[in-house]
Write a protein that binds this DNA or RNA. Structure first.
Lengths: 223, 223
DNA sequence: ATTTATTTTTAGATTGATCTAAATATTTAT
DNA sequence: ATAAATATTTAGATCAATCTAAAAATAAAT
């Protein structure tokens, strides 16, 4: 349970967690190499190591799945990452596009006491500044009834509840458009050929969002 | 100026800074090996490396001195360490004996913006929970007129302004005696042979402090 | 001042994280 | 179903941080 992982091992575990929660089961070596910005050969080595520590289920050439133990560990790292992001935005007044990089460092600080005290100080927040849920001490969290914006039909209305990507450029772009968590919008048109969407934002403004943008947004429907 | 140092390099630099500010000039390889809990051979390698980065002045067999640049870097790490300690004690309500280890990790987080915002949030504190001064952005700090308790004469009075060591056992012991920063005390007797001291604390209590304890305390005299 | 003891450095090996190039396995296409 | 393309792993090298053992320099002692 209290396995000491290196900074690097933790980052791989996190990547495996995220990839296997995005696209079903069996994460490929190449996709991992991609997100870890490294070479497949390096990934193979690391998979053997993490497998030895029972954090993942791994068979050569068959892809990798995170184990129960690995998932718990990953969730604790994610918990720390998101709590620190709340701290940085709510307490230190960073902008939401500036905190990801710093939280990437802070998430590796090892002190269970620190996490619990930080959580208490922040008032047990349930989501980070981008709308991602914060797992509790036991790794539990609940996601509200949110759907990808791309699944919305013309005429439907939703509140922005989550921005999937941490890319500062996206976040700054949304700032410019005055779109933030909680912003209400109505889908006016969907362009078939490029996936772009025409929306009306709560202040009455009409915006055109590209598919790249739309794919990073998640909304909760309302009447 | 903006040299990227590894976690390890930063720790060596900090150790060199502390050692060369304690015992004059020319820190020895062995003393460094001692404080870094490693072997002299390892230290030699690291000194060659830090010397190459102009952070120290080093001649083989002649001991090491920190350079201006190295000192600036060390002071920034110390600044971060002490600011985080204030955060942990004042904001998260850790006890003063619990924070050193955690701050040892936090001091390596790389983000100049974070340090400045943390400093502002904490209200620009000038000392950490153990009474050590916090350098400002430019590495400047001032120490009050404080003297080692061992230099006090019988009959003199002082306020505790600094506990030199971070050892949790010492800090817990002081807690038990109800001695904290700001505690006033009067030297009643000094035992020649073992360096122990009989003191009267502000609440009227009479205590006997061993030389080990006395050597870690620094007081400011008052009438 | 020469010998002895201590300190410091160098040489050579190990471990973790990485790389490139080569080998092997799997998947896809014809 | 076999060949071609793609994905993955292994082999062998490198770099940083460490170690032990041996060599070299300095300091201490007689």
């Amino acid at each position: 349970m209290d396995l000491e992982l290196s900074y690097t091992e933790e980052n791989y575990l996190k990547a495996i967690y995220h990839l296997s929660n995005g696209g079903a089961s069996g994460v490929s070596t190449n996709s991992l190499a991609d997100t870890m910005q490294t070479k497949p050969a390096t990934v193979s080595d690391m998979l053997r190591k993490l497998s030895g520590k029972k954090l993942i289920d791994y068979e050569k050439y068959k892809g990798v799945n995170i184990s129960e133990q690995g998932q718990q560990h990953a969730l604790q790292i994610i918990r720390k990452h998101r709590l620190w992001e709340v701290f940085l935005v709510d307490i230190l007044h960073f902008n939401w596009d500036e905190v990801h990089e710093i939280a990437e460092q802070l998430e590796h600080i090892k002190s269970p006491q620190l996490v619990e005290k930080l959580d208490a100080f922040l008032g047990y927040p349930t989501m980070d500044p981008h709308g991602d849920p914060i797992p509790d001490t036991h790794g539990h969290f609940n996601v509200g009834p949110t759907s990808p914006m791309s699944a919305f039909l013309v005429g439907e209305k939703g509140v922005l509840t989550c921005v999937v990507s941490d890319d500062p450029r996206l976040l700054q772009y949304l700032d410019k458009l005055q779109i933030r968590l909680g912003t209400k919008m109505k889908i006016l048109e969907k362009e078939e050929f490029d996936g772009s969407v025409k929306v009306e934002v709560e202040n009455g403004e009409i915006l055109y969002l590209s598919s790249q943008t739309v794919n990073q947004l998640s909304l909760t429907k309302f009447a």
